[in-house]
Design a binder for these strands. Structure first.
Length: 423
RNA sequence: GGAGAGAUGCCUGAGAGGCCGAAAGGAACAGUUUGCUAAACUGUCGUACGGGUAACUGUACCGCGGGUUCGAAUCCCGCUCUCUCCGCCA
């Protein structure tokens, strides 16, 4: 959510930056500002009326004490009138504000100055890659879903039986590989200074709103009707909401938190080879890193976080690239996003395994999470990133590390898996 | 699931129709003092939205939403949440 004051003070700048996101905000901002002018006028009127009422109420009190009943009654009727007027005014103000809120909520975050313009994923900028030539597998190489079945790592049909498509059952070394990855990611994040969190994996509506999943992405989350809870699509939601309605002191920042959770996504409308195997699931595991940072340092922190994630992929020895998303491919809430994609050599596809974003104050405003500064209160900046999402990592390991005899486990994981080969 | 109690500022906690944006203590911050640590003393110590170049000033907020009243943190109604006891239970 963007701040009204910012819209007023930097109107043209914001309109220009929104162009990069292919969003035309000029008319919306003007409409908002017009409504807000009206709101301010109405508020002045209402405030004055109320000030008047307050004063009269005091006078009435004094008159009553002095026993001047008649005079008091006279003032009472005057107050009644004022009250009616201010009440009408307040209704008007409420309507105006609701209108403003509704409009403000339709505006996406403002992209950072280095975000490239563009419409689709084609326009994303590859800012880093860790390979010179992509691996080429022999003709008999298998995609991960076949490998997973062959070595009994994942039972797809069983998942369908228990729940439905997109809920695979990991078995034996498949399950142990998952657990190894989780522990490896957690240990690395811990060493990088993040505090480990085990949050609830269902959240209330306010939390969903705070991080920006609600209201727009309502249909993407599983909903527990009876209690009004949402299953989290990412640990970002509960972890970021830890500091909803909180005011930080500057020396408390940055706050670095991380956690492992299962994630649930309805993925309505997905189909085809996008959803084959582990490529896209309804339930998957992820370790997420989250930071709260001062506005001055958030860009620096974004770089730090994406380098951290890249480091993990390096250690796993998977071919990957880092993309700087163009305006059109960025999420509604993000100000700048790096995506990390690993290569799955059998499918010959790139799979997104991490998305690292700086939200600036966009989430913080919704969260009402602020920073106490010398010159008043300000909003903090929030950032987060996957570090990492498991299924596609597993897919990439299986496909890239396959040999005729089995699958080689990346060296860094061996202490966690307890085995170095799957056959 | 049943019964009861409660929700006040960063925390503890008073406040029971006007003198309350709210006592007191603690924490925090600034200053004074003391040889350091510490202590003592003094001061500061909520947020939002308006008006004003500014000094300053208006309004709202005591869980949330209504109501009564000239006037509500205080009375009434509804909701939410928390705690305690009972039941069930990993």
């Amino acid at each position: 959510m963007l701040l009204l004051k910012k819209l007023r003070d930097h109107r043209d700048e914001i309109v220009a930056l929104h162009q990069i996101k292919n969003f035309d905000s000029s008319t919306i901002i003007d409409e908002i500002l017009t409504i807000d002018d009206e709101r301010r006028k109405s508020q002045k009127t209402s405030d004055d009326l109320k000030a008047n009422q307050n004063q009269l109420a005091k006078q009435i009190g004094d008159l009553m004490k002095q026993g001047k009943k008649a005079e008091a009654e006279l003032l009472k009727s005057e107050v009644a009138q004022l009250k009616e007027q201010s009440k009408n005014m307040d209704d008007e103000i409420a309507a105006l504000m609701a209108n403003i809120d509704r409009l403000v909520l339709t505006m996406p975050n403002i992209p950072g100055s280095s975000v490239p313009a563009g419409r689709t994923a084609q326009d994303n900028l590859t800012v880093y890659k860790n390979y010179t030539d992509l691996p080429v597998l022999p003709a008999h190489a298998m995609p991960h879903w076949d490998l997973a079945a062959k070595y009994r790592l994942i039972d797809w049909e069983l998942g369908v039986k228990i729940t439905g498509a997109g809920f695979p059952v990991y078995i034996g070394k498949g399950a142990r590989l998952q657990r190894a990855l989780i522990n490896y990611f957690l240990d690395k994040a811990l060493a990088a200074g993040y505090t480990e969190i085990q949050p609830p994996i269902v959240v209330n509506e306010q939390s969903g709103f705070g991080t920006g999943q609600l209201p727009d992405k309502e249909g993407q989350m599983y909903f527990v009707n009876e209690d009004g809870f949402y299953l989290i699509p990412t640990a970002e939601v509960p972890i970021t909401n830890i500091y909803r309605d909180h005011i930080f002191k500057a020396d408390e920042l940055p706050v670095k938190m991380m956690g492992y959770t299962p994630c649930f996504r309805r993925e309505a409308g997905s189909y085809g080879k996008d959803v084959r195997g582990l490529n896209r699931l309804h339930q998957f595991d992820k370790v997420e890193i989250v930071q709260f940072q001062t506005p001055e340092k958030s860009w620096e922190t974004l770089e730090e976080m994406r380098h951290y994630v890249a480091g993990l992929l390096h250690e796993l020895g998977l071919p990957f690239r880092t993309l700087l998303l163009c305006g059109g491919d960025m999420s509604f809430t993000s100000s700048m996003t790096y995506d990390m994609e690993v290569y799955a050599a059998a499918q010959q596809r790139w799979l997104e395994v991490s998305s690292v974003s700086n939200f600036q104050s966009f989430q913080a405003i919704r969260l009402n999470c602020r920073l106490k500064a010398e010159d008043g209160t300000n909003y903090v900046h929030t950032l987060n990133g996957s570090a990492l999402a498991l299924p596609r990592i597993v897919a990439s390991i299986l496909e890239n590390n396959q040999t005729p005899d089995g699958i080689k486990i990346p060296e860094v994981l061996v202490p966690y898996t307890g085995f170095d080969f799957i056959n």
